Amino acid sequence: MLDETTRQFTQVFNAVCAYGWQHSEKNGVRLHHATYYDLREAYPRLNANVLIQARIKATEALKSAFDRKAKGRKAGQPQSRQCPIRYNERTSVLNWQTQEVCLSTVEGRILVPFQVPPYSSKYAGYQVTTADLCIRNERYWLHVVVSVPEPDVPQSDEVIGVDLGLNRPAVTSNRHFLGSRHWKEVERRRFRLRRKLQSKGTKSAKRHLKKLSGRSLRFHRDCDHVLSKRIVEHATPGSTLVIENLTHIRSTSKIRKKTETSRRLHSWSFAQFHTFLSYKAQERGMQVVKIDPRHTSQTCSQCGHQARNNRRSQSVFHCRSCGYQLNADLNAAYNIRDKFCLAQGGTSVLSGPLSDGLSSHASV
């Protein structure tokens, strides 16, 4: 029954996507009026609310595809071979005590037992908002979204600047260098393997490339989870995390094409990282703020002198004016923090000058 429900849900999703793409339509209301009644007649056994959720998913996919097309990027008609069913409070009832969930199918409602993975057990018992039923390796997984109340954490005056980069994933103004150098080597190894498989061009090589693509996506996702968790763990609950607004960095960057740095820049999942950091910080009563990243790497956090040649190398910052020297990423983290503090009240939240960095000729 779940297999048949998934099949019909996928067909509805593809039908709405086909109509929207052919008519250049991405408005959810107009798509609903144009497709709902025909789809209800074509799929009478599919719950009406489940059918509407398929249309909503198709609308989201169409909006993403049209946005890519408007930016001049490669985009085609969205299509799915096995679209996960989206359930809400009207089409599913989850009981945390008995660990059973009631789901709508083409044959009516069925009661299915479930198990909560250990890493998700802390969220068990909260109010369920939506859930997606996925099939992975011939097993069903219910991805449940729960509503967690805001924590009662007293607000702190601490502000922490976070410099994100390709060489060092994250450096904080409270002097924590986070991330692993092993991540970069894993990416290099996979790039060499991908290039070797692409040169072969056989069917088995293409199958291997497809598996490698999924593995890389999961690896990036795991790295973003680990990095965001480490940043939150090293911050005081109730404090403010300040990061750079890296939107459009791929189009504004002056890095030469066809280099390792350019390749890593275009595979940098900073938007996903910001999402993970935001909800992890929210759980501890912290807020995440974005600021303009311009000149944060060229400005001395000690005297404020700005010059391109202040940064002698990727890792060394040496001010041409006052001689202040320290790690370049740490200097940028200080500037990010101070830039936010100046915008808020004109003074730093810390005692002393705007940057309490390392002593004048020290390096990290």
Rank of each mutant, 00 (worst) to 15 (best):
D163S: 13
Q79T: 13
H32Y: 15
Y334P: 12
G214N: 08
K57L: 02
L94R: 03
S351L: 06
N331R: 10
S216Y: 11
G165Q: 10
T59A: 00
A328K: 13
V226R: 03
G345T: 11
V50N: 00
K229I: 09
S156G: 11
Y123F: 06
F219N: 05
C102F: 05
H225T: 09
K210E: 15
V112H: 14
G352E: 04
H266C: 06
R194D: 03
I56F: 00
A48G: 11
T247W: 00
S173N: 06
F317S: 09
R189C: 04
E4L: 09
P154I: 14
T347F: 12
T129L: 10
R81Y: 02
A18V: 11
Q8H: 05
Q11V: 04
S278I: 00
V50D: 01
D222Q: 10
L31H: 01
F317T: 03
S239V: 11
Q314I: 12
K211N: 08
H295W: 05
K339L: 06
G323Y: 14
F13G: 04
A281L: 03
S351V: 07
V112A: 11
V364G: 08
V364E: 09
Q77R: 10
F270R: 01
E244I: 12
E138V: 10
S348H: 15
S359Q: 06
E187I: 08
R55P: 00
A65T: 01
F66Q: 05
E260I: 02
P293A: 01
F13Y: 03
T129K: 07
K69S: 09
G345D: 15
R109C: 13
P149R: 01
V316P: 07
L193Y: 13
V349G: 08
P113C: 08
Q8P: 04
G125W: 02
Q22A: 14
G285R: 08
L217P: 01
K229P: 07
A362I: 05
Y37G: 13
L197R: 15
S228R: 02
D38N: 14
Q97R: 04
C102E: 06
S213L: 15
A307Y: 12
R337I: 03
S315G: 09
S80L: 01
C134W: 14
V101K: 02
A281S: 06
R221G: 00
D157I: 15
R284D: 07
V145G: 02
E100G: 03
K71V: 04
S92Y: 02
H234D: 09
L326S: 11
Y36S: 06
R230Y: 09
P151T: 03
H220I: 07
E60L: 00
V146C: 02
E41H: 14
V50I: 12
Y19C: 05
L51T: 05
K200Y: 06
C319P: 12
T236M: 13
I231M: 07
G201C: 15
A75E: 03
N95C: 03
G238K: 14
V186P: 11
L209R: 15
F219I: 08
P237W: 02
V159N: 13
S104Y: 13
P117S: 01
I231D: 03
L39W: 01
S199G: 05
